[in-house]
Amino acid sequence: MIENRPGLNLLAHLTLMLGVAVVALPVWVAFVASTHTATDFMSGTIPLWPGPHLIENYSQMLGAGVSTSGTPPVGTMMWNSLVMALLIACGKIAISITSAFAIVYFRFPLRQLAFWCIFITMMLPVEVRIVPTFQVVADLGLLNSYAGLSIPLIASATATFLFRQVFLTIPDELTEAARIDGAGPMKFFRDILLPLSRTNIAALFVILFIYGWNQYLWPLLITTSSDYYTIVAGIKRMADAVDGLPQWHLVMATAMLAMLPPVAVVIGMQRLFVKGLVETEK
């Protein structure tokens, strides 16, 4: 905006603050809940200021977990989630960047068909193919394993498409110069394409890490051993207290902890992320 009117500025700030409040209030309530005892929260009025039990609640979650709901300590679940999210993010990037490389830079028979087949899989997310996918994973004996958690989610048409677009913006002359410079296909991929897609890889990593971390339905289905519970699915199990009140203070503490890694990833990679989404110059 070129105009600089105090009234408009105020309005803009108010709108933004309202937006922040809408997003942040539930998070704040969750944080407040995680600093009280279970009874405080059940007493009828929801406290809006942090209570004195912060360290106690969090150390219980990190150390012992909630034995009544059958979930392991938060640490284990966080670790499972982290492994799954990293496997999914890295796997998706690795697979889609190589398939985009094949589609853009190699002339093979049925190349267009291959591209469209990949593209069509966008219409088949896990939720649509969940029963057959479960069957396959079960038959392969991958229930309750990191492989079973991540592999079915790795194939990604969106990421392939994104990398294809990135590669298409790289001028042909660069490819030709590399050819004359004696770089074979794999060398070209490693020395030129990978560094040039660095920011895009980072942006995609952020999105895919959060996608993987937030997976709920799939882990819930294929993990029956508590050793492989992920944190998002675990929170759900903790809230499902059968023979008593859900221990909301602990559930909320877990939720707060579950939020940290994605936030860390976003903050840590913010600069690359923005660059990857807006940068056009190659």
């Binding site: 001028p171 002359e173 030709e176 050819r179 004359i180 410079d181 004696g182 770089a183 030129i192 040039l196």
Partner: peptide
């Protein structure tokens, strides 16, 4: 023979320098 083995060097119109190097 592949371009790399032809013992030639080429200068392109848009320079074609590797931007990350």
């Amino acid at each position: 023979i592949e371009p790399a083995d032809r013992d030639i060097a080429m200068v392109f119109q848009n320079y074609a320098l590797y931007p990350h190097m």
